[in-house]
Amino acid sequence: MNKKAIVLIMVVLASMIFISGCTQSQSNIKNSEEVSRAVTNVSTDVQDVTSTLSDIDKVLGGTK
């Protein structure tokens, strides 16, 4: 493998690292409307997750 190939690979790797760093988006939420929607969705999801945990709890037995 010659030096050019090594340099090329290094450049490609460095570029990919750079690009992956750039793609770390800051926030997909742009305004208060979207915040409101997101918080509502998270709250509802938490209740659904709680329900799933309750189901697991029941399957494990012992629940009154």
Partner: peptide, 19 residues
């Protein structure tokens, strides 16, 4: 499934924090 849910919720709330 729960693990995925929590991961998604973590990122979503982090997004809200970023906003």
């Amino acid at each position: 499934d729960l693990k995925l849910q929590f991961d998604k919720l973590s990122k979503k709330t982090d997004d809200i924090a970023n906003y």
